[in-house]
Design a binder for these strands. Sequence first.
DNA 1: AATTATTTAATGTTTATCATTAAATAATTA
DNA 2: TAATTATTTAATGATAAACATTAAATAATT
Lengths: 71, 71
Amino acid sequence: MIIVRLDRVLADRKMPLGKLADEIGVSIVNLSNLKTGKVKAVRFSTLDAICKALDCQPGDILEYAPDDPAE
Amino acid sequence: MIIVRLDRVLADRKMPLGKLADEIGVSIVNLSNLKTGKVKAVRFSTLDAICKALDCQPGDILEYAPDDPAE
DNA sequence: AATTATTTAATGTTTATCATTAAATAATTA
DNA sequence: TAATTATTTAATGATAAACATTAAATAATT
């Protein structure tokens, strides 16, 4: 399972989601969907813009978690 | 710019691309496109399958490189 | 209580993965 | 260097999903 950890980086930077949306030109609705795991893919253009704006790496935002065999 | 570093991880694991394709059920053509930077997005399902098969993290495969201001 | 921020929902457009087939290169091995 | 195997490139078409936008509902902050 791929987990999106945008919230962590935003919290670190103390940046509200709306500001990121303004800066990178992606609607806040879509960033919210990304942040809350409602999205099934990312465009590199979006990931790139986020990494640039937040000065971070894809690995700070995306995490792979092996699925629990109990599930 | 987002750089795909699949080749590195495959080399580490000594796994040919075709074998990864078989294991995760994504065509070798598409994996080749991903590996050689011809793709503009990834589905999390694909990234997930790759991470599982290669036992790695998204950050091992995706890298953000700030674009050279000279360009 | 009022304001600001975020999420959810719904709809429509556009972009791009992904499969498939086939041919062209590249790399490896005999 | 010939043969084999692996990878890349190209082209086409179907399907999936990002993304914008609007509006309403929550949630969080002041």
